[in-house]
């Protein structure tokens, strides 16, 4: 009776989530169906031809560029986000804290198109950076920072920083000042405290930040299109090209499935990493709630 009512209640509570996710799952299924279609323009019959067609250098290079740029940007974003999160966590004044938070959130608020044009103004051949360098006589010909992988990487890093800062910031909550002081009193200098105490305690936050950033950047479309031009064919751009000039719908669907499999694989790996590293004892082993560790 009770169990029945509580399961009914959990179903009711998860209804909004189910409604939100249903169209997405439907689309995924539709894409999957299209990818195994016998014809490239409409869904009819079954064939794995679209997948076999993907096994050519152009598409494989696209997969490689996508994984490489997503992984590199994830690494750089994490390295940049840890100090940002630690600084925000250490700020005591509410106003300063809020200002910092809003600044970090800015890339989420601004349209990707506007941000990409911002990068073009800064880094383009006649942009701010190149003009300044030329006028100071440091270079004679403009450095190419746009319409290549460097430009795309910069854009991916910049737009994904807020996605990493906030999970890491929430992970800093378990680190009390007394942990750091305890390590220090036992003989650890600042770097050792960072490696031995701060980083391990941030690990769950780091892993979730990494998986969000990787998934977000692997499926990026606007940034590679605007900052990479046609030269940097990340999967998002490649899929669009299959649809729009080529009308190869089943090929695009198959490429989409490949992207979904890659990102899902990375997310599952991250989840496994969290479970293995968290070292959290099973609830039955815990005799008392965890130490709160709040400073005096």
């Amino acid at each position: 009776m009770n169990a029945h009512r509580s399961s009914l209640r959990s179903f009711a509570l998860s209804l909004p989530a189910i409604i939100a996710i249903a169209p997405f799952l439907g689309a995924c299924f539709y894409i999957f169906r299209f990818s195994v279609s016998g014809e490239s323009g409409v869904i009819s019959g079954y064939s794995l031809q679209a997948y076999f067609d993907l096994a050519e250098p152009f598409f494989l290079r696209s997969v490689w560029v996508t994984v490489k740029l997503a992984a590199l940007s994830t690494l750089v974003v994490l390295i940049l986000s840890v100090p940002i999160a630690l600084v925000i966590a250490s700020v005591r004044t509410a106003l300063v804290r809020r200002l910092l938070t809003v600044t970090i959130l800015l890339p989420m608020i601004l349209n990707l198109l506007i941000q990409s044009y911002g990068w073009i103004i800064l880094l383009g051949p006649s942009g701010v950076l190149n003009t300044t360098l030329r006028e100071t006589g440091l270079i004679s010909r403009p450095i190419l920072l746009l319409f290549n992988e460097t430009g795309v990487l910069l854009g991916l890093i910049q737009t994904a920083i807020p996605l990493a800062v906030f999970p890491i910031l929430s992970a800093t909550r378990v680190i009390s000042r007394e942990y750091l002081e305890a390590a220090s009193s036992l003989g650890a200098g600042n770097w050792r405290v960072f490696y031995d105490v701060i980083l391990p305690l941030l690990k769950p936050g780091l892993v979730s930040a990494a998986s969000i950033v990787f998934a977000y950047n692997a499926s990026a479309f606007a940034v590679p299109l605007l900052l990479g031009g046609r030269r940097v064919q990340m999967l998002g751009v490649a899929i669009r090209d299959m649809i729009s000039p080529l009308f190869n719908w089943s090929g695009a669907a198959a490429a989409g499935m490949v992207l979904i499999v890659i990102t899902t694989g990375v997310l599952l790996l991250a989840a496994a990493l969290i479970n293995r590293s968290a070292r959290t004892p099973k609830p039955s082993e815990v005799s008392e709630p965890l130490q709160s560790g709040g400073g005096a």
Partner: peptide, 28 residues
């Protein structure tokens, strides 16, 4: 600096490192 003083300290919250075992804490 505190890490060069060579003192042992027990904190109000105890501040045992939650990501280490008992032995790792004592051996740190």
């Amino acid at each position: 600096p505190p890490h060069k003083r060579g003192f042992g300290m027990v904190f109000q919250s105890l501040a045992l490192f939650p990501h280490m075992s008992v032995a790792q804490n004592i051996a740190y």
